[in-house]
């Protein structure tokens, strides 16, 4: 009934390859976060703006990002867009999909954070002769980013985990993709995925702990 023999040695021999994959996973996650934060700020400004088309764009983006599976978003970025003759590499598609998801969730976090910053902060900036853009850039945005720092950490963890969905669009350079390929070669399914699981766990733990250290510095005030 239970005749599976563990062969950890065989699996562990593949660890260097998997760690290379982990580096790609981190790359995708970090890039998708940086782009996601930039886009989320833009979406937040769109939502704050008086323009109805801009508001509509931002709202649609956030609604789709938060209410459809991340898998759908990555799939659309690859095969959906390909229907129109635009072909991205699996890496790019995965990056676009996760970035889209990040931006949507972060924009929602930023909106919440903005509510915690009194309007009088902007007013004080404007009174000192600052333009609306300067008031946002130097007074509101830094506070907004600090307030949403912990939700951003969560999103970063999600970004790491979402990279595993890349296999559906043929991504095989990241941790999950590499593991999948190794599994096809060796059939050490349990061992390989268990190791991958541990690597994912360690990466996300390092991120949350690192974030806590950074937070201690950021939240001095």
């Amino acid at each position: 009934m239970f005749d599976y023999t563990f062969q950890w040695k065989q699996a562990l021999a593949r660890l260097p390859k998997m760690l290379d994959g982990a580096v790609v996973t981190m790359e995708v996650a970090v890039l998708s976060m940086l782009l996601g934060i930039a886009l989320a700020i833009l979406l937040t400004l769109f939502r704050q703006s008086g323009s109805r088309p801009l508001k509509a764009i931002a709202t649609t983006w956030v609604e789709i990002a938060r209410n459809t599976p991340a898998l759908f978003q990555i799939y659309m970025a690859h095969f959906g867009i390909a229907s129109f003759g635009i072909h991205f590499s699996p890496f790019t598609s995965l990056l676009i999909g996760i970035t889209f998801n990040n931006a949507g969730y972060l924009a929602e976090n930023f909106r919440g954070a903005l509510k915690a910053i009194p309007d009088t902060q902007t007013r004080a900036g404007r009174s000192l002769g600052m333009t609306p853009v300067q008031s946002f850039r130097y007074i509101v945005m830094p506070q907004m980013l600090r307030i949403s720092f912990l939700p951003m950490t969560n999103q970063m963890v999600w970004a790491i985990l979402m990279t595993s969905l890349g296999v559906t669009v043929g991504m095989n350079m990241d941790l999950y993709g590499v593991t999948q390929d190794l599994n096809a070669l060796t059939f050490r399914t349990f061992e390989l995925f268990a190791i991958a699981g541990v690597i994912f766990y360690v990466i996300t733990k390092i991120i949350t702990l690192g974030a806590r250290l950074i937070a201690m510095r950021l939240f001095r005030y």
């Binding site: 009194p118 009088t120 007013r123 600052m130 830094p142 005030y221």
Partner: peptide, 23 residues
């Protein structure tokens, strides 16, 4: 104003230098 609206993320010195520098 009645509510002084200090910029909480900046030190006292930075609160005062912000507008002269940026504006």
């Amino acid at each position: 104003f009645q509510q002084w609206n200090a910029f909480p993320h900046l030190t006292v010195l930075e609160n005062v230098t912000l507008a002269p520098r940026k504006v």
